[in-house]
Amino acid sequence: MKPLLTKTVVLEQEQIQPGFFRMVLSAPEVAQRAEPGQFVQIRVNNGLDPLLPRPISLHDIDPLKGTITLLYHSAGKGTRILATAVVGQELPLWGPLGKGWKMTEAEEDFLPIYVAGGIGIAPLLPLAAAWSRREEPGILLYGARSAGQVMAVRAFEALGVEVQVATEDGSFGMMGRVTDLLEQSPWGERRPLLYVCGPKPMLKAVHKMAEAKGWACQISLEERMCCGLGACLSCVCKTKAKAAGKAWTHSKVCTDGPVFWSGEVVWDE
């Protein structure tokens, strides 16, 4: 579905953990066309500084209410301004953008395993909602630094998702990393389909495991973006070339992704 440029209105803005915000926006047309794993380019103000929009994933898509929800970390200049937006404020954005998570055919009988690192939890919730509509809610394996960075667990549980958490300091769930949860293959005899979002080193570690064990694995990448439309070529990543005689090519994270099969990506640096 084609993206559109729209002025959204802030309906809710809440700090759910220190530095992490959940924002509900009225954006009926975006909600009607969006799919899990897609994102929007949101302007944090109407001025010239910051100049560029920020790419933020859709954390909840509600076509009936006409709302979208963003879950974001106020990390730098732009997202800190976003965190000051108040209810009733207008925020322009364009979207939905990119190619989201791929659901497989029901006959293939995969069990969805959501693998999240920190704020990487954000785009996985609408995917879990879609899988739970298919009566296959799946399992969430969630790694975070500490309890203060664990979010949205109840929303996953409400969908019937089994949730396992690992924190580096042991303040929530098991002490350890998300890869430790993966080691235990909690899906038993089922065939897992991994959906992974988190920091790059985590994506790479999970990809390596998936490759070694033959698990199907999709990952959502981040790159710096300007247009989000495939026009500026800021946001490229290296992917395996299909043409003969070439090892790799540049794909656009904004329009070819942000979701890729982990085996498509060239994981060098």
Partner: peptide
């Protein structure tokens, strides 16, 4: 052309830097 490696873009006050490298 494949252009330059990333990061290829940086936001600056009221501006931006790009080094796409003619991909």
């Amino acid at each position: 052309r494949e252009g330059n490696p990333t990061p290829r873009m940086a936001e600056t006050p009221a501006g931006m830097l790009n080094a796409i490298g003619l991909q």
